Amino acid sequence: TYTYKLTDEEASRRAEDEWRNRGYDVRVRNNNGTWEVEVR
């Protein structure tokens, strides 16, 4: 499981799409203004 911490929502969406396209399960959540993109 990888977790990315990003401050930019758009960057988190791009990361989400990119990993999803590669067949990974992705979750995005906002934690106090930081976007966490979790990849498994």
Rank of each mutant, 00 (worst) to 15 (best):
T1S: 12
T1Y: 13
T1P: 10
T1D: 07
Y2L: 11
Y2N: 06
Y2Q: 09
Y2R: 12
Y2M: 11
Y2G: 05
Y2W: 15
Y2I: 13
Y2C: 15
Y2F: 13
T3W: 10
T3S: 07
T3K: 09
T3F: 11
T3I: 15
T3E: 04
T3G: 03
Y4S: 03
Y4H: 05
Y4T: 03
Y4G: 02
Y4I: 13
Y4D: 03
Y4K: 03
K5D: 07
K5V: 14
K5A: 11
K5W: 14
K5R: 12
K5F: 15
L6H: 12
L6T: 14
L6W: 09
L6Q: 07
L6I: 09
L6G: 07
L6M: 14
L6F: 15
T7N: 13
T7W: 12
T7I: 12
T7M: 13
T7L: 13
D8P: 01
D8R: 02
D8Q: 04
D8E: 06
D8F: 04
D8V: 03
E9T: 04
E9D: 04
E9F: 10
E9V: 07
E9M: 07
E9G: 05
E9H: 07
E9W: 09
E10N: 09
E10Q: 10
E10R: 07
E10L: 10
E10Y: 09
A11F: 05
A11P: 02
A11V: 05
A11R: 06
A11M: 08
A11W: 06
A11I: 04
S12D: 02
S12H: 03
S12I: 07
S12N: 02
S12Y: 07
S12E: 02
S12W: 07
S12F: 08
S12M: 15
R13K: 12
R13I: 07
R13D: 03
R13Q: 08
R13F: 05
R14T: 08
R14N: 08
R14H: 10
R14K: 12
R14Y: 08
A15S: 05
A15E: 07
A15G: 03
A15D: 06
A15W: 11
A15V: 15
A15T: 12
E16D: 03
E16T: 09
E16Y: 13
E16V: 14
E16G: 10
E16P: 03
D17K: 15
D17R: 15
D17G: 10
D17N: 13
E18C: 14
E18K: 11
E18F: 15
E18Q: 10
E18D: 10
E18G: 06
E18R: 10
E18T: 10
W19M: 05
W19E: 03
W19P: 00
W19G: 02
W19H: 03
W19V: 01
W19N: 02
R20G: 04
R20F: 04
R20P: 01
R20T: 08
N21D: 10
N21I: 09
N21R: 14
N21F: 08
N21S: 13
N21L: 12
R22A: 11
R22C: 00
R22T: 03
R22S: 05
R22D: 04
R22H: 07
G23F: 02
G23I: 01
G23K: 01
G23W: 01
G23M: 00
G23R: 00
G23T: 00
G23N: 03
G23Q: 01
Y24L: 04
Y24E: 02
Y24R: 02
Y24S: 02
Y24M: 04
Y24H: 04
Y24P: 02
Y24C: 09
D25T: 11
D25A: 09
D25P: 04
D25Q: 12
D25M: 09
V26F: 01
V26Q: 01
V26K: 01
V26T: 04
V26M: 00
V26P: 02
R27S: 15
R27L: 14
R27K: 14
R27M: 13
V28I: 12
V28Y: 04
V28H: 03
V28A: 04
V28C: 08
V28D: 03
R29Q: 11
R29V: 14
R29N: 11
R29D: 06
R29T: 15
R29H: 13
N30E: 14
N30S: 07
N30Y: 15
N30L: 12
N30V: 10
N30D: 09
N31T: 09
N31I: 13
N31W: 07
N31M: 08
N32V: 03
N32S: 07
N32I: 02
N32C: 15
N32L: 06
N32W: 03
N32G: 11
G33R: 01
G33W: 01
G33I: 01
G33M: 03
G33Q: 04
T34I: 15
T34L: 12
T34V: 15
T34R: 07
T34G: 05
T34P: 01
T34W: 12
T34H: 10
T34E: 10
W35C: 01
W35H: 01
W35E: 01
W35R: 00
W35K: 00
W35I: 04
W35Q: 01
E36K: 01
E36W: 13
E36Y: 14
E36G: 00
E36R: 02
E36D: 04
E36L: 12
V37M: 05
V37L: 12
V37H: 04
E38T: 13
E38G: 01
E38P: 00
V39S: 00
V39A: 01
V39K: 00
V39H: 02
V39Y: 02
V39N: 00
V39G: 00
R40N: 08
R40T: 12
R40W: 14
R40E: 07
